[in-house]
Simulated scan of single mutants.
Amino acid sequence: MLHLLTLSSLGRDLFNIKMLIVVLITIGLITLMTILTYLLEQQVHRRQNRYWTIVAHGAEALSVLISMILLRQIFITLNSGSIISWTYATVQLTILLFSLNTMRNLAVEIINLLMPLFIYGQAIWLGHSTQYLPVFLAMAIILISTVVYITHNYQELHAIHAYQHHQMGPVTMVMFDIDHFKAFNDQYGHLAGDAVLRHVAHFVELELNQRSTHGQIFRYGGEEFVIIFRGISALETGQIMRTIQRKLKTVPIKFNAQTLNVTVSIGISELQPTDQTFTDWFVRVDDYLYQSKQAGRDQTTVESQLLTD
């Protein structure tokens, strides 16, 4: 009998005009969040500034909270003050998992961990019933475990899945870092170091866009950067990056009347069928980057082979 009542409740939630309104609003919120995230992340990549990164990630997390609060108020209005609804839980979780997959920052991760507990815990409290408490606790543990796993394995899941299931051709990773970066900080100050980081990131991004390579550049940490190329082999990628590398050398940066010449060292490798995890691939590329440094810096190593001009 309880199962029939539950199914009946679910049916009433799924097939009515109120649900259509909520679905359309949810789609609108996801669209706005996507646009906001794209604009903010573009600025983060251009500025390469820790303060701006914190502000951008805070704004993304705030957009998630505002979306959830707005959905809550809409449900309260449509359901005469009640939020005990299958649809309510579903759309809230949709917003949460969408933000986790799209935004990928610490504040959004924390929201994804805490809000499901609030949503379902509140529903149990308002319903004044504990009959579903064991189910709630079990599902909360599963959900939290899933969120943590996705958060810490997103890049691995994305890359391996794309390579194995979408037949998109080769997927190539480039890792490069700025040669003697510490010397810029020590000799000219940290403002000079920041200027060099912005110069290199902006220069490489412009070169990739002009060549229509569809390469996605990310700052990995410190003076290191990673680029993912889809549909381009390691050898082709090596030729592209070697050209960019040589061109970067001819475009020094001006800082406080000083001319700073910048070079980078590069390691390149394709994702292989034998790579069981993202780490297998990442470590190999990092090793090739180290080989380029050992060869005297301002070098490019592709699949353990040093490129020559």
Rank of each mutant, 00 (worst) to 15 (best):
T102V: 12
M103W: 11
M103Q: 13
M103L: 13
M103K: 15
R104Y: 15
N105C: 12
N105W: 07
L106T: 10
L106F: 12
L106W: 13
L106S: 13
A107C: 08
A107V: 02
V108T: 12
V108N: 11
V108I: 14
E109L: 13
I110G: 04
I111E: 11
N112P: 03
L113I: 14
L113D: 02
L114A: 13
M115Y: 09
M115H: 03
P116N: 08
L117Q: 07
F118V: 10
F118D: 11
F118T: 08
I119L: 12
I119V: 06
I119P: 06
Y120K: 01
G121H: 14
G121E: 11
Q122A: 03
Q122G: 11
Q122C: 03
A123K: 04
A123Q: 09
I124T: 05
I124E: 07
W125N: 02
L126D: 08
L126K: 06
G127C: 00
H128D: 06
H128S: 00
S129K: 04
T130N: 00
Q131V: 07
Y132E: 06
L133Y: 07
P134S: 00
P134M: 07
V135R: 01
F136N: 08
L137M: 03
L137K: 06
L137Y: 09
A138D: 00
M139N: 10
M139S: 11
A140G: 06
I141L: 14
L143P: 12
L143K: 11
L143Y: 08
I144C: 10
I144M: 01
I144T: 01
I144Y: 01
S145K: 11
S145H: 01
T146G: 14
T146F: 10
T146M: 12
T146Y: 05
V147M: 02
V148E: 11
V148Q: 08
Y149C: 10
Y149G: 03
I150K: 06
I150R: 09
I150D: 04
I150H: 15
H152V: 11
N153Y: 14
N153D: 09
Y154F: 15
